[in-house]
């Protein structure tokens, strides 16, 4: 564990709490893409299958269980409790392509051609593009509640800090994980426009609006 990874994980954790806070405080999931949330639930379930096979640490286990449980809980909130506040008309990104593309990539790029490894690769590739329906929704509405932008920022920042973590681990441990690196770079790059507007608008006390 190094500083970057710890802060990254805490940001990831924070992003989920911010999202839950947004939904509970405003009693609405307006502005949140159900499709992105669905993709994250798939990402966590397919990646953390090793909960049943490998013990890493208490920290690792608790975080994995939390990520799976919270993602399913958010789906429940959006699909049932606050269903009336969700606008499917704005959430029209075609996730079939993301799922199919990630699966094809996982079948080609994996550390071993066995179901667990293929699903792990699939989750890495799917995570890198899972934010797209949310960003697409943002571009359709052209604006967002400030708390929603904090959520997206924390979620994007987590993977950006993982890039620092991977550089650290490569230098000090010789740790190499090419698939995660490439996917992490793509994931962070997808946020770059968002980061720019977040920095120039939200952090200067203005509303998040697309130019």
């Amino acid at each position: 564990m190094n500083f970057f990874r710890l802060v990254a994980d805490l940001m990831h954790l924070a992003s989920i709490f911010i999202l839950l806070l947004k939904i509970q405080k405003t009693r609405s999931c307006a502005g949140i893409s159900f499709k992105t949330q669905l993709l994250y639930a798939i990402v966590f379930v397919t990646r953390y299958l090793d909960l049943f096979t490998t013990w890493i640490s208490l920290y690792n286990t608790i975080m994995k269980i939390f990520f799976i449980a919270s993602s399913v809980y958010i789906l429940y909130l959006m699909k049932y409790k606050f269903r009336a506040t969700y606008d499917p008309i704005l959430d029209t990104f075609r996730i079939e392509f993301l799922l199919a593309g990630s699966l094809v990539l996982a079948l080609i790029f994996n550390y071993d051609f066995v179901p667990m490894e293929i699903l792990w690769s699939f989750s890495i590739f799917l995570e890198s593009v899972a934010i797209l329906p949310q960003l697409f929704m943002l571009s359709r509405t052209g604006e967002a509640e400030t708390i929603t932008t904090h959520y997206i920022f924390a979620l994007g920042g987590y993977r950006a800090l993982y890039l620092c973590n991977w550089l650290w681990r490569y230098i000090f441990d010789g740790h190499v994980d090419v698939y995660a690196w490439v996917a992490g770079i793509v994931q962070t790059a997808l946020y770059s426009d968002f980061f720019y507007i977040y920095y120039t608008k939200v952090l200067h006390g203005k509303k998040f609006e697309l130019p």
Binding site: D9, I56, F67, W120, D177
Partner: peptide
């Protein structure tokens, strides 16, 4: 040949 690949991250 399989690469050594430990998955200890989240």
């Amino acid at each position: 040949k399989k690469k050594e690949h430990k998955k200890d991250e989240l």
